[in-house]
Amino acid sequence: MSILVILEQHNGQWHRISWETLAAGQQLGVALGLPVEAAIAGKGVEGPASEAATRKLEKVWAVEHDLLEQYTADGHTAAFEELIRKTQPSLVLFPHTYQVRDFAPKLATRFSQVLVSDVIAARNDNGLVLVRQFFQGKLSGDIRPGGSPCFASLQAGAWRADQLETGSAAMETFVPTLDASRIRQKPEPPFRETARAVDLSAAGIIVSVGRGIKEESNIPVVRELAAALGAELAASRPICDAGWLPMERQVGSSGQTVAPKIYIAVGISGAIQHLVGMKGAKTIVAINKDPNAPIFEVADYGIVGDLFEVVPALVEALKKAKG
């Protein structure tokens, strides 16, 4: 009985949710009275594993194999399956990254379990209760997992890495028995599409537009607001997918991460993949006709109303304020 926390790093760079997940593991270890171990898989991961071992943990596993040098779903699943069969944890925690989405459900299936994905909170209430979002963040729900081990992936920003406790953990190298012929994915090196001409991360004020704008021909409505504020224009993913604004202006998990003084979200619902890209803004303003839109959960100021009435009024008010 233990908690196993799976950490993720790429070419020596930690995925930052790794530390948040480790902090969650430590806190759940206390709440459930379980020892906490961590594991990291790859080739040459002893360095990162020894760094993880400076945290308060029972043990850190360096899951080491040449065939793990490049991530593949088949390779990672097989390696962690073997480790889990050996160490028999009752709870396995992952950071909710794209990589985890790719292999953790497969791993859970090997144990006839599901992955409880994108968890935002957890507690001990006569056993483990996990909280996750439904309907793109419009509702939350408590999940009571059954069976063992329980697999859960944790949402970015849900736990705080600065709450990690330091300590000193034992380190052990684990070499899984992998077979090259059973790894069916042949990955090529990652690439970027085009150089980014716009660096939104330096912008002081951002006006960001979402699907509430309805049509491409309405984009000038928000363009005018951006002009009145001297702001950069950004967007949620569907706007860039549709080609209404260039890809490089997309904010979110698959776009840019921004932290302006003011972020004005216009007609954006506030799905987590958008929020992770802009939660760091100093002041967040949301304009949305739906008072229950999740964007209001992170907003400092909100106007509930039709953007086609509110935005022109705001432009007017700004002009007046400037005199």
Partner: peptide
């Protein structure tokens, strides 16, 4: 993540 892609066969 963050605007990166990868091909896989």
């Amino acid at each position: 993540e963050n605007g990166w892609f990868q091909h896989i066969e």
